[in-house]
């Protein structure tokens, strides 16, 4: 192999490529990841039909993902128009999935150490007040399945239910920086327990938080 190709291969096998799997999801109706990678022919039909330009073409090359469709929730979540499932020619996106409430792209997960409402509630319960707390309901307010997929416990703590489709609009809306307080654990990824949470689990392993 020529030197340049050696470099390419080396670079493309960096573990960093799966460094941020959180908030990187398959389009609605996607089948289980191993099967998806077999079926997806990278035709880009789903990418083209998406009216919101939310589905993007991957340029990651681990496990030959390059060219496959992803939704990057931190930039833009899926608006659940369900057009993509109607055009996939191979069934990588299941065309039986047509009703937006039925799709399961993933599930939202709240980081209660960053979520503004959680922080406020903690201060409220502890009886402390330092003036830095803000009431924010952006994930709740922007959710297309507001009240069903997400609700506010005690009118303040966002909670996710099993009706969450994982569309990622909540992640897109979340105002916290630099990390979002609400993230999507994608469905259908290999290593489903670790999907997107590799670093988090390593930390747990080492006895951290």
């Amino acid at each position: 192999m020529s030197f340049i190709n050696k470099i390419k291969l080396f670079l493309n096998s960096f573990e960093d490529n799966e460094f941020f799997k959180i908030n990187r999801m398959r389009p609605p109706g996607a089948v289980e990841e191993k099967l998806f990678m077999e079926l997806c022919i990278r035709c880009s039909k789903c990418i083209e039909i998406c009216p919101y330009r939310v589905i993007k073409r991957s340029n990651l090359t681990k496990d030959f993902e390059v060219g496959t469709p992803y939704i990057y929730a931190e930039e833009k979540g899926c608006r659940l128009c369900m057009k993509c499932t109607t055009v996939c020619p191979t069934g990588a996106l299941d065309k039986e999935v047509t009703y937006f409430r039925d799709t399961r792209i993933g599930v939202a997960k709240i980081d209660d150490t960053i979520c503004l409402n959680h922080l406020l509630y903690n201060q409220e319960e502890a009886g402390i007040a330092d003036g830095t707390m803000a009431v924010c309901n952006q994930c709740f307010n922007s959710c297309p399945l507001k009240f069903d997929a997400i609700y506010l416990e005690d009118m303040i703590l966002p909670r996710i239910t099993d009706k969450c489709t994982g569309c990622g609009i909540c992640t897109e809306s979340c105002p916290t920086t630099p990390k979002k307080a609400i993230n999507i654990l994608p469905n259908g990824m290999a290593d489903i327990d670790e999907a997107g949470y590799k670093q988090y689990l390593k930390r747990i392993e080492k006895g951290g938080r």
Binding site: L116, L120, Q123, A129, G131, M133, A134, V135, C136, P175
Partner: peptide
């Protein structure tokens, strides 16, 4: 920006995310 913890309107100095920004 921060809330005024002595306030009698926004008691405990809470602000909403709009006001905070």
């Amino acid at each position: 920006m921060k809330g005024n913890v002595e306030s009698l309107t926004n008691t405990r100095g809470y602000l909403c995310v709009k006001g905070m920004n």
